Deep mutational scan, measured.
Amino acid sequence: ILEEAISVVMSGKMSVSKAQSIYGIPHSTLEYKVKERLGTLK
């Protein structure tokens, strides 16, 4: 489920907030994982 949510957000089909409510994943977790994948994590 997490992988799917990350893919959807990264493809631009859904915002982090929308994915959070649909997949039930905490906003901070989703945002962290997306940034980690994009290489923008500081």
Rank of each mutant, 00 (worst) to 15 (best):
A19L: 00
K13R: 09
I22W: 07
E4Y: 00
V16T: 09
E36K: 04
I25P: 04
M14Q: 05
I25K: 03
M14L: 10
E4L: 06
L41H: 10
M10W: 01
G24C: 07
A5E: 05
K35E: 11
L2D: 05
S28T: 13
I22G: 05
G12N: 14
L2E: 10
Y32T: 15
S11R: 07
E4S: 06
P26N: 10
H27T: 13
E3N: 07
I1C: 12
K35P: 09
S11W: 01
S17A: 15
L38M: 13
G12M: 01
I1Q: 12
K18W: 01
I22Q: 14
M10K: 06
T29Q: 12
P26L: 00
E3H: 02
H27V: 14
E31V: 08
L30W: 01
A5D: 00
Q20T: 13
A5P: 03
Y23R: 02
G24D: 11
K35L: 07
I6S: 04
E3Y: 03
K35D: 10
K13V: 06
M14N: 02
K13T: 09
L2M: 12
S28M: 08
L30Q: 04
V9E: 01
T29M: 13
I22D: 09
I6E: 05
I25M: 03
L30N: 03
S15L: 00
Y23W: 02
P26G: 07
L38R: 12
K33W: 07
K33A: 14
V9Y: 01
L41G: 15
I1A: 12
K13P: 01
V34A: 06
K35H: 09
R37P: 04
A5M: 00
K42C: 12
E36R: 04
V16M: 06
H27F: 08
H27S: 15
P26C: 05
I6F: 06
A19E: 01
M14A: 06
A5H: 00
E36I: 05
G39A: 13
P26T: 05
I25T: 04
I1L: 13
A5L: 02
T40C: 13
K18I: 05
T29A: 10
K33H: 14
L30I: 10
K13Q: 11
S15Y: 00
V8S: 11
K42H: 12
L2C: 05
S11Q: 15
V9W: 01
Y32A: 15
S11V: 04
E4R: 05
I25V: 12
L30F: 02
E4H: 00
S17L: 11
K42P: 15
S15G: 07
I22A: 14
M10R: 04
V9D: 03
Y32E: 15
S28A: 14
H27K: 15
E31G: 05
V8I: 08
L2K: 07
R37C: 05
G39D: 12
M10C: 08
S17I: 15
S15C: 06
Q20Y: 08
K33E: 15
